[in-house]
Design a protein around this nucleic acid. Structure first.
Lengths: 252, 252
DNA sequence: TCAATAGTGTCTTTCAGACAGTATATA
DNA sequence: TATATACTGTCTGAAAGACACTATTGA
C-alpha cells in the first residue's frame, strides 16, 4: 500500500480559467433531464398509483407518470433548481397540494439511450406517499379529468404505459415493499390519527399479503414503548367495538 | 373512486410530428450529466476507496472520485450509451480491468444546482466492489501516480475532496453497510476462494465493528445448506491451523 | 510445550408466526 | 343475544449474542 500524502488545500478557481471551462462545458451535446413521480396512496385497502393521460405527443393518450423537465438556468450563474426541488415542484403542480405535504424520496435514475423517441432524456425518478386524506382531495380538487388513481393489483397489470414507466413503477413497488418492514413509511399512508387495524391494512395493501391481527399488534406495541408512537384519548367507531386512535410521533 | 377506463392502444408516432418534438426538445437549456464511481475494496482488513488526483481545473490537485461525462450522441438517432454502460466504461478506463470484472450498482443521483462551478452538472453515482486480487493489480498496472487507495477510517476523515464527493462517499458507505447484512455483497470483496475468517474480516472492515468468530461461523454455515456457498477441498495456511477454503456459488 | 486460530456446542434473549381466549361495541 | 372486531396471552421455532470448550497447526 502506498501511504497517501497529505491532501493539498482546495484551490481557488481562477475566474479567467473558469470562463474557459464553462465554454468548453457547453461545447458537448447534453441530455435532457426530467423527474418522474410514482405517487402512491392506499384507498379502500388498495394500493394505488397516480397516473395522468398524456395530452401531447409522444404517446398522446397513453397513461403515464406525472413529471417534467428539471429547470436548468440559462447561464452558469443561474443554474436553476436542485433535483429534489424539481421533484417537489412537480408534485405540487400535479396534485395541487402545497410543497411539503407528502413524503418524497429519490428512487432511481433511468437512462437507457433509447427510452424516449424525442431524443436523449434521462429521468430521475422519485416516489411520493400520500395519506388518504390528501389523496381524496386530489380527486375533488384539480381538474383531474386526466389524472386518476389506479389500483396496482387490479388495473396496472393489464395496462400499457408510456415509455419505460412500467419499469419505474416496478422499481418503486419493490422499494416500498422492502422499506416498509424496517422504516416508518406506513405512517405516511394513514390519516393524522389512526387505529392499529388501519395501519395493518396499509401494510397488507403494500405487501399484498395479510397479517395476523394479534401478532401485528404486538409488533406495533413495541413502537409505543420506543416513543415512535403515542396514543390519543380518542376512539374510532368501526361498526363494532371502537378502536383506540394513535398518532405518529414524528420528532421524538 | 372513479373507475378507470380501459387504456387506449399505444399510439404510433407520426414521423413529421416527431421531428417537431425533437426540435422543441433541443430548444431548452440542458444540464451536463456525468457518472461518478465509488470504487471500494478491502485490503489488510481495511476498507478503502479509490481516488484520483485531478489533473485539470476545476480543483486541480484535489483528490476526487473517478468519473466522467456520459456519452450522448450528437443526434436523436445516435443517442449514445446507457447510463449503466457509461459507468462500466468509466470503471474499465480508470482501473484497466475488463468490463464485468467488478460488481457495479447505481447509488444515487446528485443534482444540487451549484455542485460544480463549471455550470449545471448532474451526476449519477455508482459504487463498485473489487476483490483484493483485482484491487492489487490496479496499483501495479496502470500508471497510478495519480490513483490511490485511501483508507476510509484512517485517511478520509481529514481529507478535503473535490465538489460534493464527500457526500457521495458517505452515501455509498451507508448503502453497503446496510446491504451487507442481507445481500451477498461481501463475496465481491474476497478472492475467488476464501476462508470464513477472511469473509468475517470483510464484514468487520465494512461495518467497522468486530464479530464473534463462533457466531459468525454459524450464520455463515446456514448459507452452506442454502446452496449459496460450497466448500472446496483446499485449505489456506494461516500461520496456525489451516482453514478450509470456500467458494461463492454465484448461480445455483 | 505453548500460542493462536479453526471449529463446535450451550445458554439466553428476542421476535415472528400460529392460534386460543377474553372484552366490548353494534345490530 | 349474536356477531364482529378489539385486545390479550401462550406456545413454538428461528436466529443472534455471549461465552465455554475442543482440535489442530506452527514455532
Amino acid at each position: 500500500m502506498i501511504p497517501p500524502e497529505p491532501a493539498p488545500e482546495r484551490p481557488r478557481e481562477d475566474p479567467v480559467e473558469l470562463e474557459a471551462l464553462r465554454a468548453d462545458h457547453n461545447s458537448y451535446p447534453k441530455p435532457a433531464v426530467t423527474t418522474d413521480l410514482v405517487v402512491m396512496t392506499v384507498l379502500d385497502a388498495d394500493l394505488r398509483i397516480l397516473l395522468i393521460q398524456r395530452a401531447n405527443a409522444p404517446q398522446r393518450g397513453s397513461w403515464a407518470l406525472p413529471g417534467g423537465f428539471v429547470d436548468v438556468g440559462p447561464t452558469p450563474d443561474e443554474q436553476g433548481e436542485d433535483l429534489d426541488t424539481a421533484a417537489h415542484r412537480e408534485l405540487a403542480e400535479e396534485t395541487g397540494l402545497p410543497v411539503g405535504t407528502a413524503f418524497l424520496e429519490q428512487l432511481y435514475t433511468f437512462g437507457a439511450a433509447d427510452r424516449d423517441p424525442r431524443g436523449r432524456i434521462i429521468t430521475v425518478a422519485y416516489y411520493a406517499l400520500l395519506s388518504p386524506t390528501h389523496a381524496k382531495s386530489i380527486q375533488a380538487g384539480s381538474d383531474a379529468a386526466d389524472a386518476r388513481w389506479f389500483s396496482v393489483q387490479r388495473d396496472l397489470p393489464a395496462m400499457p404505459l408510456a415509455f419505460d414507466h412500467d419499469q419505474i413503477i416496478t422499481t418503486a413497488l419493490t422499494r416500498i415493499r422492502g422499506k416498509i418492514d424496517y422504516a416508518p413509511i406506513a405512517f405516511e399512508l394513514v390519516p393524522e390519527t389512526f387505529t392499529i387495524a388501519e395501519l395493518r391494512t396499509v401494510h397488507e395493501a403494500v405487501k399484498g399479503q395479510s397479517y395476523d391481527p394479534g401478532n401485528f399488534r404486538r409488533r406495533f406495541k413495541r413502537m409505543l414503548t420506543d416513543g415512535v408512537l403515542e396514543p390519543t384519548d380518542q376512539k374510532r367507531k368501526t361498526g363494532t367495538k371502537p378502536a383506540l386512535l394513535y398518532r405518529f410521533a414524528r420528532r421524538p
